[in-house]
Each structure stands twice: as C-alpha cells, then as structure tokens.
Design a protein around this nucleic acid. Structure first.
Lengths: 186, 186
DNA sequence: GAAGTTAGTAGACGCTTGTTTACTGGTCAA
DNA sequence: TTGACCAGTAAACAAGCGTCTACTAACTTC
C-alpha cells in the first residue's frame, strides 16, 4: 500500500502521457476518466492536474505529440491516392488506428474537445494535403479525402474489424485508391 | 409555477419524443441530459423514464422512428451515385443532417449507444444499399459508400458548414458523384 | 545534521448525471 | 358524491465526475 515510491518527475509525467495516449486512443475523451488514467499510469490522480493542468490540456498535449500522419503526405502527388489507400486499409485491418483518427471518431460527441480536434485535423491532414494538390479547389479536394479517411475510421470503430465486410487487402487497397483518386483529381 | 396542467398522456409522450429527436440530432447522446429533454419538452423529468424506461431506450425509440433514408435508396442502381451525392451535398449545405447521421457522428464516442447505432446503420443503410448493388462484394462496396456519407457528416459537424471549403453545389455534387461511383462500381 | 524544496499521497469538495420515490390533484365510472 | 385510477410534480437518491487541499516524506542544499 504505502510502498516507498521513487521520486521521478519526468518519468511519472511520461507514464501519465503514455497512459493517456493509450486510453484516449482506445476509448475516446469522454469515456476516459482521470482516475482511469491515474490507474493505468500507476500514478496519483492529483499529479495529472499538477503536471498538465486539466484533462482538456492533457488531451491537447497528447494530440500535439502524437496526432500526426508520419511521412504519409510526403509522397509525390500522383502516388498520394495509393499511399492513402494503403494507410487506411492497414489501419482498418490492424484495428490500431492513429491517435488523431481515433480521437476524431471517438471524441467527436464531446464539445470540450471540438476546438482541439479541429485544429489538429486542420494542421495534420487538411492543410498539408491541400498544399500538395495541384490544380484548383485544393482545399475542397483535401476535405473530400479527409472525409473518406474519417468515415472509414468511424465505421471500423463502430463495427469491429472482423465484422466489417472486406475482401483481401489488395482489393481493399485498389478500391480505396480509386476512391481517393476521385476525391483528389483536379 | 404550479399551474394546472392538462392531463394528456399521448401528447406528453410525443412532446418528449420530439424534443429528444431534436436534441439528440443537434447535440449527440452524451451531451443531452434528461433534464434538458424535460425542459425542451416542457414536461417533468420523471415522465421520461415512466414513458420510455430509460435514456437509452428513448434514444433507441427515436432512432427506430426517425433513423431512415427516405426514398433515397429506391433509385435505379445506375442513378445511386448521383442521388447519394445530392443527398449528402444538400445535407452539408443545410446543416440539417438526418438523425441517423447525426447520431452516428455525435454519439459514436458513447459505448451505451454503439449497439443501437450499429443496428440502425446496418438496417437503414448498409443492407438496403448492398441489396441494390449488382456484382460481387456488394457488402464491401456499400460499406465504402457508407464511410463516405459518415465521413462527410463528421467533418461538416466538426467544422461548421460555413467554415468548410466547398465550391458551388454543382461542383460538390459532381465530385461526390465520382466518389460514390468509385465506391459502388462492380 | 538542519532547513527547504517538492514529488507523491489520501481524501474530500462541489457538481452533474440517470434514476426513483412519495406525493398531489385532475378525471371518470358507479 | 365517492372512490379508484393515473398523469404530473418535487425532491431526493446513489454514483461518478474533474478538481483541489492538506499533508507526508524523500531528495537537495548549505
């Protein structure tokens, strides 16, 4: 019970951040309680607010650190549809969505997180994607592709990965590539 | 305060159901409280549970009544992409999403409603849409189209209708038609 | 070794939630 | 007119939430 605990500010802070990332990804903002984070991080609940200010600020920090699409958008623009398709298809199969996708899907019903999520979607997907698109209406085309990404994430979360109808990976990637081409074509 | 109130069981029940439909559509399951529904319906909070059993059952009844796509899926299958595109584009502009879309988007973070929403999405969109698709992998293609619908709904809810980049209606419908064609093609 | 700093802890605070209970008072048949 | 029925009401219930305070004890500094 009252074991002597190591004093490790940075370590504790990181454990809390890791636990929050895991839980927010898996359960969404509302379903995750401060006590759950504390238990998962094996830390005292008061330390969360001490180190991060509030639940909301913790969520924002988690998203700032982890809410990115690593290297995905650096592809040449003609390869973008296929790259996006592969990314989405693999996330769909592994059931291990990126944090920003999970956050978007699972925390969208929560008013507190709207602004945070909106800003991160914009800066992590919409704007970099639009910047890579030649031709007119780039912002709108990027929005269409983002809608596909989030829609797939939404359904794969609503139904389990097993329950969702899907043929082999190549067929899924092929169709998603066509869909993204339709979204992104000038 | 203690005005004499009409005794009108059916009327009160309907007022509660209407208020719940409006609020669930606008705010999502979690953000809507029993007290809010009672206030909106101008009814006593205890009557909600008396007539509907619980918040969850009320939500299920609202969805059972209103969660449909009226007449949309009866179109000939070659017109489906354009019809879906027009439907989504108009919902996007009017900011008055269908209940099932709003429920899906706004209530997806809530574990209590997963089963209810899943069943309604299946019976209101996925299955009727798949049934109208000739060729193989109909279920998967219907899922792809559903993902687009929900993804658009998600983004239009995250960003306001004004903030979302969109050219004129014809351009939006045209692009969405192409996207749905890519989803639904055999 | 004493004093000060601070990581970690336990517990309570105020609030909101969905739900339930005990009650009031219209309505209508006998 | 009386009595059973039941729509409607006010208040409380237990549980859960994010947050905060008072405290303990381990480390650092002199």
């Amino acid at each position: 019970m009252d074991e002597t605990r190591q004093r490790d500010r940075e370590g504790t802070r990181r454990r809390i951040l890791d636990a929050a990332r895991r839980l927010f990804t898996e359960l969404g903002y509302d379903q995750v309680t401060m006590r759950l984070i504390a238990a998962e991080a094996d830390a005292n609940i008061a330390l969360i607010n001490r180190y991060f200010g509030s639940k909301r600020e913790l969520f924002a920090e988690v998203l700032a650190v982890q809410g990115r699409f690593p290297g995905l958008l650096e592809a040449p623009s003609e390869e973008l549809p296929r790259r996006l398709a592969e990314y989405v298809a693999d996330r769909l199969r592994s059931d291990q969505g990126s944090l920003i996708m999970s956050a978007l899907v699972r925390s969208s019903g929560c008013a507190e997180t709207h602004e945070i999520i909106r800003d991160r979607v914009r800066s992590a997907i919409l704007e970099p994607l639009a910047a890579r698109l030649p031709g007119g209406d780039a912002a709108f085309r990027a929005t269409a592709a983002t809608a596909v990404i989030t829609g797939v994430g939404m359904l794969s979360q609503l139904y389990g990965k097993g329950e969702l109808e899907a043929p082999d990976r190549e067929a899924v990637v092929g169709r998603l590539t066509a869909v993204f081409q339709a979204c992104l074509a000038p």
